[in-house]
Amino acid sequence: MFAYVVKRLISGVLVVTLISMAIFLLFWYGPSSPAQPICDRESGNRCTPARLATYEKTLGYDNPVYEEYGKFVKGVFVGRTLTIASNDYECAAPCLGISFRTKAPVKEELVSRMPATFSIAVGGALLYLLFGVPIGVAAARRRGSLADKSLVSSFLFISSIPYYLFALLTWLYLTVTFEVPLFSNTGYFSPITEGPWKWFSGMFLAWVALGIFGCTQYTRYTRGAMVESLSEDYIRTAKAKGLPARTIIYKHGLRAALVPVVTIFGIDFGTLLAGTIFTERIFEIKGIGWWALEAVTGKDLPVVQATALFGAVALIISNLIVDVVYSVLDPRVRLS
């Protein structure tokens, strides 16, 4: 078990390294010089070749790529000093660069954005698991019935709507058209430390949108896995032992059905942590997704780089957690 986790951690670190290289190379060999955006910005769109060369030189873009990647890695561990034009910027470890726009260290901004995104992700995921899994179980128990069929088809309908459209409609109907009081505060993220109610009311609409949409999907995943697990031989054995229906469904059926659901959830949750771009954009919550979007439009390369890397790390960590949970659920994985 321990060796397994260590093995997964090592391979995770390897993957992060490779991804960071790939991202680095992508910007290095992009269509224009990596210094072009900052040159444009600083010189008010009158970036001459001479100015560009200055930026390239101070940012180190005239050095070989491996040398600069080395400096980047070193910065992550011990910090570094970055020079843009003639100004020096101190960037403490773990240094992910200096934002071209704000000139602040990327890491600090990342940390300040995290609570908003994490709030959305955790709340939304909790909602859709809390509703999706039990509804899926109930549907599987009544499989083939009218209730099951109508539920499955209506949920299929909802989950085939593009998420951004669904979120937009939720916002439109709940706040603008009907002005539901609970949702009126949306769009102002305030950290939970500044009062739970403010935090809660600011997040609530985003959670509802994410929760309903995820719920439709998780209901279908759970239902599918549950139908499969309920048709297994061991369910028949459990019934033959004289166990009550509740024990058969939850202890014997759901435990096995959870394995595939957990697998999907791991990928989903990792993606959520990396930034719920649509949710943040539509409900105006300034989290990592929003930030990434701004960085892309503003050609803020260090930020784009950092958000991409953060996304990769989030995905790898959540996958690692899934694997551990998986081995807790299924002793065959743990003991082989």
Binding site: E232, D233, Y234, R236, T237, A238, A240, H252, R255, A256, L329, D330, P331, R332
Partner: peptide, 11 residues
């Protein structure tokens, strides 16, 4: 039952 591997719960 036949096939005790399937008839016993794996977990």
């Amino acid at each position: 039952f036949q096939d005790a591997l399937a008839a016993l719960h794996p977990f």
